[in-house]
Design a binder for these strands. Sequence first.
DNA 1: TTGTGTGAACGTTTTCACAGCG
DNA 2: CGCTGTGAAAACGTTCACACAA
Lengths: 281, 281
Amino acid sequence: MATGRTHRPATRSRGIPEATVARLPLYLRALTALSERSVPTVSSEELAAAAGVNSAKLRKDFSYLGSYGTRGVGYDVEYLVYQISRELGLTQDWPVVIVGIGNLGAALANYGGFASRGFRVAALIDADPAMAGKPVAGIAVQHTDELEKIITDNGVSIGVIATPAGAAQQVCDRLVAAGVTSILNFAPTVLTVPDGVDVRKVDLSIELQILAFHEQRKAGEDAGHDDEESDDARAVAAREARRAVREVREAAAKGAPAADAPAGASDRKGPDGDVPAVMPA
Amino acid sequence: MATGRTHRPATRSRGIPEATVARLPLYLRALTALSERSVPTVSSEELAAAAGVNSAKLRKDFSYLGSYGTRGVGYDVEYLVYQISRELGLTQDWPVVIVGIGNLGAALANYGGFASRGFRVAALIDADPAMAGKPVAGIAVQHTDELEKIITDNGVSIGVIATPAGAAQQVCDRLVAAGVTSILNFAPTVLTVPDGVDVRKVDLSIELQILAFHEQRKAGEDAGHDDEESDDARAVAAREARRAVREVREAAAKGAPAADAPAGASDRKGPDGDVPAVMPA
DNA sequence: TTGTGTGAACGTTTTCACAGCG
DNA sequence: CGCTGTGAAAACGTTCACACAA
């Protein structure tokens, strides 16, 4: 199938493990803070605490970059800042475009964290003609028609999608066709992109759902039976439930939803489904 | 050390692997879409494609919940929606508070994806007295002074922090003290919480930095030497660089930054550092 | 026959524990 | 002696491939 893969495919980042790459920005932040307080060196223990990881992990991570520490002393803060910035590619400036200037898009445009790292908002793009020309975060919003021209003229390779879910794939396709090879997606959809294009997604409601899961667990343990329910117990219960489950399903199929049964979940909020992450763009 | 751990500690979620939990919302979304199109059943292959994972993974994931499929047929859409919702704890309504009603906080308040799942915005809280009483997304913003009362009165157990980095830990402490046990943190800081409290973080600039890393890789490969640089080559290069590196560092220590050297990284943007994710709250 | 459910193989990430450098 | 750097072990996650139920 040459249709293009869906998500971070076999793009194994040569050399540095993906898990490590994901933590480098964390270290960088902690180091920057230390640097501002003019702290000259840190131990792996201290830095790890500041970054919220354990020291063994941090040392392993750094070992992939090279041997930048001094035994018996620690790491030189300034020097590490430089090395990590370099490794992350933050010593150059990355022009980015934000597409979809609704509530969230505007928040992103105003977000200082971008500019303070190596990112520069090259343009804000929105499909609403009424938005065109209006300044957001000091930048005039441009119309979607200009998208391709903006990408090429500015040599943009990173795009941020903050449109409603419905528009996301379309926008994504245009970005990619115009030359964008990295996409940060805030729309609650799975984007399909060709090989060689990286997509990362941020989904606000998914994060909350994960929290809800754990929250429910806590509640269950407090009220529930034993403190430590074994894995087996769960598996067995699930297996036992299967019979009952099948009956319920059949009942439901006959159009008579049982008291504690399906079909209820989908009428939670009417024909709403995947609501856009932002105001209509 | 009773100081309280930093990040998802040993809270191994009994039974269902964390990685699976993180994907359940994805499946749920795909299923909801199918449900709306009145599709009665899906195969693991189809659903996996819609969710952007491969089918083996999806089947494994579902196997942790129980045996909810029918061999030779697939999964009953409505039924799976129900089961996953149940597993995620979305059959009940979770009141959440959002603290820090800046640009991002407002975007979150307006985000339809919360309400459409089992989440209800119980209150918006901000430290700015001028904000108090102003309606955002149809809800009057309340002052931080009310925080504890709001939490207890509404039985809130999930809090969203969208304040500037500087205020986040303080807000977090108050939320936790008032009874919140799950926190979604948008501020670019590592939060320290007691055991039993879950924290998930969303950091916009970290995501971009990860993209930049991969983007740099791509560029390097295009321009660079061999197509497929071996892991060893990198390791060796790093090791060789060590010598040079040490010299550079010593030069820098003497106050004479070399042409291609440290200290440059921190003056990128003056005394800016960790800029808040949102407007001052 | 079709497509689920799952042991077993494989790959990645984390943790351990300690040799050895400064 | 203290703290990094790193092999080796353990834990975790993904993929394979096929028995078996419908």
